[in-house]
Simulated scan of single mutants.
Amino acid sequence: MQRDDLADFLRRRREAIRPADVGLAEGPRRRTAGLRREEVALLAGMSTDYVVRLEQGRSAQPSAQMLSALARALRLTEDERDHLYHLAGQQPPRSPGGATHARAGLLRMLDLLGDTPATVASDLGETLAQNRMATLLFGDQTRFRGDRRFHAWRWFTDPEWRQAYPQEDAEHHSRVTVADLRATAARRHGDSDVDGLVHRLLAASPQFAALWGEHEVAVRRSDRKRIVNRQVGVIHLDCETLVTPDLGQKLLVLTPQPGTDAAEKLALLSVVGLTHFSA
């Protein structure tokens, strides 16, 4: 671990970011260049004291989870993210089989979307980042580990996860989830990450196995969703999916369906606070 270089790198990256770049107000009487340490701590979900100790070269070796949170908070590019891991004496996340870190440009788009729920996901359905409104709507989907990181795994193996959608919509969501995974499997033919997930799903879920056998293939570009939120009820949303040129990551943006009360319910949800799912 290169403590002094790590401290200098973190400090310089913090000072290079404007508050507006991460969705924060500039505010009056701001004398600090870039972000304040407490703002980095807030964005990364860690204590301000820990950020201070890192920047002063007084911390123990940060965990991979802490480094990932810092990389997201500081909007690091993939090269900068890898450099951060090396300075901390950690191996960067493996990416040949799929991204594990949201692109900096997509993170900036999340910030700009403000009160519109949006998430960044990998092509395997792992949520890499969410903005505040997406977290209010679905809960924190970045917290999962192992196979639970993947939407398809949660959908087909965890009955509670389906409670976020009306029961009558379950068949549609099952089909589009499998068809989207089929498209990824075809594009990444022979990839052990994809093949392993599919193999485990085939063994774990008879419904997945049956749908997989139908060989439907489709990359989701747009969809209509009804989300069941425990605090405000059913919300009717349009989902638009923007895919990166290499198809490795996608930005999912959820907007209120015209002619429904979705906009009012999202505004109410923003005031009510975080939704907690037992899943």
Rank of each mutant, 00 (worst) to 15 (best):
L54E: 08
P93C: 04
V51D: 07
G57V: 01
L136C: 08
T116P: 00
F144A: 09
F144S: 09
R103L: 14
Q56A: 09
T116M: 00
V52N: 12
G27E: 10
A102D: 06
E126P: 01
Q141E: 15
R31T: 10
S47H: 05
A121K: 03
V40R: 08
R31D: 06
A16T: 09
Q61S: 15
E126Y: 00
L67A: 06
V22Q: 03
M109F: 05
A129P: 00
L67Y: 02
A33V: 11
P28A: 08
P62K: 01
R72E: 09
L67R: 02
R30H: 12
R75I: 12
T127L: 00
R132Q: 13
A33L: 12
A44V: 06
E78P: 02
L42Q: 15
T127M: 09
M109L: 14
S47N: 07
L67S: 04
A102H: 07
R58V: 10
E55Q: 07
L107K: 02
P93G: 15
Y50V: 06
F144Y: 14
R12Y: 05
A69S: 15
T127F: 00
T100S: 12
E126N: 04
T32I: 10
T142A: 09
T135D: 02
R103D: 15
S68W: 12
R94F: 01
S59P: 08
A104T: 15
N131Y: 03
G105E: 14
M66I: 15
L67D: 02
L84Q: 06
A104N: 10
P62T: 07
A121S: 14
L110I: 10
R94T: 11
Q65N: 13
T142L: 07
R143T: 15
R143V: 15
E39T: 12
L54A: 05
A134R: 04
G57Y: 04
H101P: 00
V22M: 01
L137W: 00
A118C: 06
L42W: 06
R37D: 03
R12E: 15
Q91M: 04
E26L: 11
T142F: 03
D111H: 12
T48Y: 00
A69P: 01
S122G: 14
G34C: 04
L43W: 07
L128I: 09
R14M: 11
P92L: 06
Q61A: 14
T32D: 01
